[in-house]
Amino acid sequence: MSSYLRSDRRKARRRLLIATVIVVALFALDILSGGFFRGIARTASMIVWSAGSRIESAVFGSGYFSSRRSLQTENDALKQKIIEFEVETAEIETLKNENAELREVVHLAESTGGITAPIVSSVRSSPYGTFMVGAGTAEGISAGSMVMAGGGRSFVIGRITEAGEHSSLVKEVFAPGVSAEGELRGAVLLFEGQGGGNARAKAPRTLSVAEGDSVTSALFGGRLIGVVGAVSSDSGSAYQSVYVRTPVNLSKLQFVYVVPNR
């Protein structure tokens, strides 16, 4: 090997080493400073996302893609209608259960005071099941506040994990790698988040589960966190797999309802 190549590679490795040190230092400084670099990165991402959204609406609103776009819009509207029906069904079922359980559960959604906050980031870009909302500590929001959506703002879709002054990071209930305890038909199950508002749980075969059944969670004050989308079972297994999803399309949401901690 020529000395020129050797020296070139040595230089390249030195550059990589410097890059590694800088990346590690930035990460450490961010933690030590309580999120200084996070704040900068998130502000930049919100600006880029809002510019991207404006460009998207300008392009699709121009009429250039109108025929395809109109079909897509109609399709989305119909899907949304189905989702709304599912939400209503799930809500009715939950109300029935509540009445049956000695009418002890307090009415939740009506009694909670919260604020409506816009979603200010993409909800599909995060590998960690997070997204940003445009409300923060200045609006009375703190870490742990519940984030809700759906008809009657009755579905919990996540929790605030980090609150800035005017923006906050929300972690979805069914974020990838996160497990949430939920109640389905009276049985408490562990739902493993799969991302995109989906989760999976193993339930005993003896438990009668059907599509559209609602899942509530004591972790979220007994509120709804999802509906059963599919059930699959193997005749040789003692368990059945229950697939649960958030009944609102997160990527279509523009606003959420945040209930501050009391």
Partner: peptide, 24 residues
């Protein structure tokens, strides 16, 4: 150097500081 920089950017934007579970 852009390779870890992109990774760091993703984590700075989306990673929740006190996620539930080691993976998160």
């Amino acid at each position: 150097w852009e390779i870890p920089a992109i990774g760091l950017f993703v984590d700075l934007i989306w990673l929740a500081p006190s996620g539930e579970g080691l993976l998160a």
